[in-house]
Design a binder for these strands. Structure first.
Lengths: 241, 241
DNA sequence: ATAATACACGAACATACGTCCTATGTCAAG
DNA sequence: CTTGACATAGGACGTATGTTCGTGTATTAT
């Protein structure tokens, strides 16, 4: 259950350290160039390059084209500097009190229709329905991007997901190899849940059910990643039938 | 020594609210223009104007000429409009503990072996591992009879349950029609998860996967119900393969 | 040796974003 | 009525910042 830390170069480590430190000290993220300075690199593109790797590896998150929008997801264990009382307090308040997270249920997921997405980042409130999940079950510290969908129909059984199941997803448009993602296939006009693998010239979508074969997507453009699945919950509801 | 909070106009309040909300949701501050949008103001200068006032009054901090560098210093009191996380946290603080129940993981479930059962009702403590589940996800009021098992191997895919999944079960030796039960089949020498239906002269065990056929047990004696499944949890763990 | 790949630099570019200046309207005090 | 403080709008301007592209150099695979 512990996060994997593969191939983190010295540079990567330094960047992560700088990110957390800077965030902690200033309350906002550094710019690309500031990161470059911190590791002695003059080229912004190189920093961008590293940031993308860290993103791939799931260490950080960024918003496209938005300044200083880097979020550190897995702070490295090496923290000894907590200058900001505020940050500290907030952090403590976060994980000390709310072990239970309420995730809005954005709608139902059907193979034949696109994914309903939470209408905005701000409407936690009006979600009429939601699921409560223990924080310990979730990989991400960042709760804001999580939403849940209820599976409608049998069309996802090849993903080992059945009618009535609840999938908790994280909003994203990129995926790492091995992630289970919800994708919209343009040519097939359908939504599907599959494991994502980027291969040399194509993308392999592997069903969770080991008995079923993968499908391949040659054109990355025709595949829209809507989010990655982080949790599946099935309440057995003793239905007669 | 608390800061004075004089003359906070509706606009000020709205801005503060938006700031905290946005920060909370995105992990970084909004831009001037985003703030403007949020309060229905087109002019960036006006937003700047307000921000300076808030700064004067000690509500926020900003860095000159740095994007998205606003820090909220004094989150507004109560007001019923706090960002959800905090609000929820506070609200739940009292009953959070009781809403979350810790279920011991008794062992692993394999088709080829009997179910490991919790040795006694009292050994919550020494359970090295456990899962935390929100009470709202569980049907049963009675926590003491619940235990969890981790699925080992692919042998349960006909129950739509895969390697690594966690099944939460309620200890029982009887079942009602429609329950999903874990049963030990004497003649086959295996454990399986199936929906339980008592028919006229036999018992029908129906896989969760609608594509697969049922199996029938003629002799009720050769079937031992170990418990009924109340919840299945699958954490997607992004493993390459 | 050749090709492919990862790592690195710098510069050009587009734009997101903060700053600041001008104009307009309101309203209470002088 | 005039004055001035305050609230609001619009936009010009400069720069801070993320993105992209062309190029170069090691390192590794074929």
């Amino acid at each position: 259950m512990a996060k994997r830390h593969p191939g983190l170069s010295e540079r990567h480590r330094k960047i992560m350290e700088f990110l957390t430190k800077f965030q902690d000290a200033n309350g906002y993220s550094p710019s690309i160039r500031q990161i470059g300075d911190s590791i002695g690199v003059k080229s912004t593109s190189l920093v961008d390059y590293y940031l993308n790797q860290l993103l791939e590896m799931g260490y950080i998150e960024r918003e496209n084209r938005i300044s200083r929008s880097i979020r550190v997801l897995t702070p490295l264990p090496s923290e000894s500097s907590l200058p900001s009382k505020v940050a500290d307090a907030i952090r403590n308040a976060g994980n000390a009190i709310s072990d239970l997270i309420s995730i809005p249920i954005a709608g139902r997921i059907v193979a034949s229709a696109p994914l309903p997405m939470p209408t905005s980042d701000l409407n936690y409130y009006d979600a009429e329905s939601s699921v409560d999940i223990a924080r310990s079950l979730l990989p991400s510290r960042d709760v804001s991007e999580l939403f849940a969908l209820e599976v409608d129909g049998d069309s996802m059984i090849d993903a080992m997901v059945n009618d009535g199941d609840i999938v908790v997803m994280k909003k994203t448009s990129t995926a790492n190899n091995g992630d289970m993602v919800a994708v919209w296939l343009d040519d097939k006009d359908e939504t599907t849940l599959k494991y994502f693998y980027k291969e040399a010239k194509r993308i392999r979508l592997q069903p969770a059910n080991p008995n079923m074969g993968p499908i391949y997507v040659e054109d990355p453009k025709s595949l829209r990643i809507m989010g990655k699945v982080v949790l599946v919950i099935r309440q057995i509801k003793s239905v007669a039938g």
